[in-house]
């Protein structure tokens, strides 16, 4: 069973839920950090990566001997990854989506595709948790292919928790696709509700069953709960608004380790999701 943890905006406690859930699970689990631009699940586990794998995408390379500078490739490229000013075109692999269009339209067959590194997938082990994290190389804007590579490590028939990037854009959708269940983390505030509504629209559009975790419960009002009950969405867990939780997070510690009284709470979330 693969469960994704997502939220409409950053800073709602997505990573907190992912790492504590993984820790509470008694059996083997894969924890996938798909927030490849700012991976931070590793900050909660001190294990060194034992495996590293490079991830590449195909990007164009121009054979200067064959190119006559016609500029067709630059004209075709919608991502502005190629620029031409009468000479051999200049290529910006970091802008390339790897669609293959330039290779296709080049009348001189002067473009070949080469593998270009976009980041790494790192695997580390802490107890029963296998942490697999994608780390996008600095200066690269293409997150989805790396997220797909991270997801390529998923073991058939195993249990996995996927920590998604914040928001509702392409990298989030790449993370959520083909998962079995989505946990949406939010706060009981007007901002939280607004961003939750966007996230709910997104998950419904992809068509995956989901439920909601309300973090910092008690800080706001019941509008998030009201919305969930109107929309027939399950509220899976309420994490109380406890200053000690914020302090624990700020030090990079797990709630279920530092504040044992919260173990039961995360156990309940397990029962309502993975152990369902």
């Amino acid at each position: 069973m693969n469960i994704a943890v997502a939220s409409g905006k950053g800073g709602t406690g997505k990573t907190t839920v992912s790492v504590n859930l993984a820790r509470m699970l008694g059996s083997k689990v894969q924890l996938l950090d798909c927030d490849v631009e700012e991976p931070n699940a590793h900050l909660f586990f001190q294990a060194e990566p034992k495996e590293k794998m490079e991830v590449t995408i195909p990007v164009p390379q121009v054979d200067e001997g064959l190119c006559d500078g016609c500029g067709e490739c630059a004209k075709f490229c919608r991502y502005h990854a190629i620029v031409s000013f009468g000479t051999t075109p200049l290529i910006f692999p970091e802008m390339c989506h790897g669609c293959g269009g330039c290779t296709m339209v080049c009348p001189k067959k002067a473009i070949r595709e080469m593998d270009k590194r976009i980041g790494m997938v790192e695997t580390s082990q802490t107890g029963h948790i296998t942490l697999i994290q994608g780390r996008l190389d600095v200066g690269v804007a293409m997150a989805p292919p790396l997220i797909r590579a991270v997801k390529g490590c998923l073991q058939e028939g195993g249990t996995a928790i996927l920590d998604a990037p914040p928001g509702t854009s392409c990298p989030v959708i790449a993370t959520l696709r083909n998962t079995d269940f989505v946990i949406l983390v939010t706060e009981p505030t007007p901002f939280g509700l607004n961003d939750l509504q966007l996230a709910v629209d997104m998950v419904r559009e992809i068509g995956i069953p989901f439920g909601v975790v309300v973090n910092r419960f008690g800080v706001g009002d019941n509008r998030v709960h009201q919305f969930c009950s109107e929309q027939q969405i399950n509220v899976l867990l309420e994490i109380p608004d406890d200053r000690r939780i914020a302090e624990t997070y700020s030090r990079g510690e797990l709630i279920v380790d530092s504040l044992p009284e919260y173990r039961q709470l995360f156990k309940g979330l397990l029962d309502r999701t993975i152990n369902r």
């Binding site: 075709f76 919608r78 991502y79 989506h97 669609c99 293959g100 269009g101 296709m104 339209v105 959708i173 559009e205 992809i206």
Partner: peptide, 13 residues
């Protein structure tokens, strides 16, 4: 539409 990245390859082929 969610998967489409708007590259234009299909239009061409």
């Amino acid at each position: 539409p969610i998967a489409c990245e708007g590259c234009g390859v299909c239009v061409r082929v």
